[in-house]
Design a protein around this nucleic acid. Sequence first.
RNA 1: GGGCUCGUGGUCUAGUUGGCUAUGACGUCGCCUUGACAUGGCGGAGGUCCUGAGUUCGAAUCUCAGCGGGCCCA
Length: 872
Amino acid sequence: MQRPIRYGMASSDELPKNYDFAEVEERWQKSWRDEDHYFDPNSKKPQFVIDTPPPYPTGNFHIGNALNWCYIDFFARYKRMKGYNVMFPQGWDCHGLPTEVKVEELNHITKNDVSREKFRKMCRDLTIKNIEQMRLTLRRMAFSTDWSNEYITMMPKYYSKTQLSFLRMLKSGYIYQDEHPVNFCTRCETAIAFAEVSYEDRETQLNFFDFDGVEIATTRPELLAACVAVAVHPADDRYHNLKGKSLKVPLFGHAVPVVQDEAVDPKFGSGAVMICTFGDKQDVHWWKQHNLPLRKAIDRKGKMTEICGKYTGLSSTECRKAILADMKSAGILKKQEKLQQRVGTCWRCKTPIEILSNKQWFIRIRQQEIRDAAHQIKWYPEHMLLRMENWIDQMEWDWCISRQRIFATPIPVWTCTKCGEIVVPDEKDLPCDPTLTKPKQPCPKCGGNDFKGEEDVLDTWMDSSISVLNVTGWDGSGKPKIFPAQIRPQGHDIIRTWAFYSILRSVALTGSKPWDQILVNGMVLGEDGFKMSKSRGNVIVPEDLVGRYGADALRQWAATGAALGSDIMFSWNDVIAASRFQTKMWNIFRFALIQFGKDGIDENAPITALADRWLLARLSDTVAAVSARMENYEFDEALKAIREFAWDVLADNYIELAKGRLYASDVSRKSACRVLYTAYDSLCRMLAPFVPYFAEESYSYLKKGSVHKQPWVDFTFNDPAAKAEGDLLVKVVAEVRKYKHDKGLALNAPLGKVTVYAPHTTNDENDTARTINADVHWRTDKAHLDKVVSGIDFNRSVVGKTFRKDASAFMDAVKALSAEELAHPPKTIAVNGKDLPIPENAFAPQYSYVEEGAKVDMITVGDVIVTVAGKE
RNA sequence: GGGCUCGUGGUCUAGUUGGCUAUGACGUCGCCUUGACAUGGCGGAGGUCCUGAGUUCGAAUCUCAGCGGGCCCA
């Protein structure tokens, strides 16, 4: 049964004994209002705009997303409490191949079976369904999303901005069209960017063959038709005679020059390589360097072109086989060796990429510009900047932004069929699909009226790399008022893509860095330490976890799991520990509420007892520490400090000390209640960003109003003496407990007189006495103790081994020694009439102490002496 | 091959401007059902701080070399 929402001080009979997270979380989720999290454009508060990552709407919010969003929500909530006007937008990065593939799968079609428009609609419908699913999870997780700033990249409102940014960058010369080699996936039939290439190890064959008298080693004989040169190292003596010569390509017969290049490794293969357009990135290098011609041997579908003669139409694998067979029968194939190599593949479908030369759209990469902007951003953790720098430094090609797909932002250009002029739409006519509409004016160059709409579409990163411009309200007119954003949170896996492209685009379009700070979080690994994957069976689904332990427990796991930037192993242990902490907190609050229920709270009661001042001093330190950690996004440390204070300091020490006073009804009870009240209130507020449901529920028993609308805790209590003396108090209690434990006594067993000889007298309001159940006296004078030998500990393994049958006689002799002799034993001792040496470690005297005539036990706490008189 | 990052009890981890007996959690063992909580309390056992060399009165921490893991890239 669900309880009604209630606010304000509870009476103790209203208090449920157990914290039922499922009931509580559902109830609060229903009552919270979206409006409370809206960014207020007219606010006078300082702004805190977050450029959140728009997830790909697969329908499933995975645990890595959850970690990322928890971090965002922690600081979004914290900043709101600190008085900032926070924008926590939610975007959806819709376009791209996975959805196309999914639509084909679900409808049993290929994209060519239906019209482009129909296919797009199918993709849009699926995406909307997925987004709705994921929104539910976001709400269940209690993320304080600003739903008034939601954006969906496939919607006209968003992608018209993508198109606007394209037109602006085209105009300013950043974007150009060119025939250029690009990474190409022949399965997806599209160009892909370097960031989309992944690498796999595989074994291949290195083929040595006779190339017009020169031995050449190649892994890609099928590219023989595309051979445009042979390269050797200039210092390679074997090939001096080839300088300036040309060679005839076997099987094909065209002549190619021999070029010299330092980049050729004389030790690899035969030391002579053939340059083809294009086998790999190195070929592109050489091709540019030596101004070689272009011979295209492979087409977009991965088939051999006409220049391959009789091999035309074969796939590259078939062609390789055929050419090797023909080399063999011509007797020019010398030998074959196995070779380990890394091959670039399409990150989506794992097909090995080809480098093909096509007409494509590009964005110029101006490295220095990006580097400068990256340096103006504060990186958390700092070393992530290095990854960005390394990536920038080794960029060689411009960013290819055109894709040959359907579900994506159209490139808004037409080509005049008569003169080839590029024509663009008016900015006010965006969004625009050039395959469906025509330009309003004739061609400005030749006056022609026949145009071809661009069928290529934009890379998805072209959408998401303006997320920050979108949320800050960019409309093309320079730099928006609230730009740059304050922070970009993201994973380290997309530094070279999303972060890199966002910086590039912001600089190009506004001349400024996109954000003040970037916060980089790690990846979530499975419980076995490996990346989560279905095949490993180590995948954790957030919804499952939330169902079993609640959203707050998952959020705590995210906070405590890892330091910023480092990968985090998933651990059920941490989730269980989190849920236990909530139980503990609930019981602490229950205890406090029961006390408050007896005769209310006096918020101005004088703080009298030492323990009370001690607790407030420790609370003050905790608030300072937690606040500092929050400022630095060190959520693990922040939550750790809260837990430590609540569990160790408040529950295990303070409450144990103050219990007696709270049960009694003297004046100092009010002091303890006020302290409990302050701690309760502060803890709710410090916990609010981490466990919003739990904090809200707990706070509702204390006061009216939502804890999430309270300011962050501002509490200082400076009392170094109370801290030092209170620490002593706690230590004395701990030592006496240990003493009881060692004596086999129950912790509440009564003791007789306990005297503490400390440097200062301490007004502990009898807390110590009640806690350890003894008559406690605090004294500042020196302890007057008489040390008395009360017995002797024999080490029987030493005594027995040394004295054999004289052992008992030896022990009797030792017992007969005086106290003085026992403390400083002689070298020898008379046993059965003989003087025998006393072995080392044979015995140790036991001492007892006598204080004012009574026998006592002595405990030391640093230089403080505590005596305990038994209760006989 | 290059860059980044890391190596601490069985497991995960804190600690690096060099300095008390190396932190905590989980697990484990023992004791305790005391009026918030046994999803608790108290206590114990358990560590070559990856290896080696160096600097130093002193190294988990600094330097060098090596071994090993992870990530990114060639």
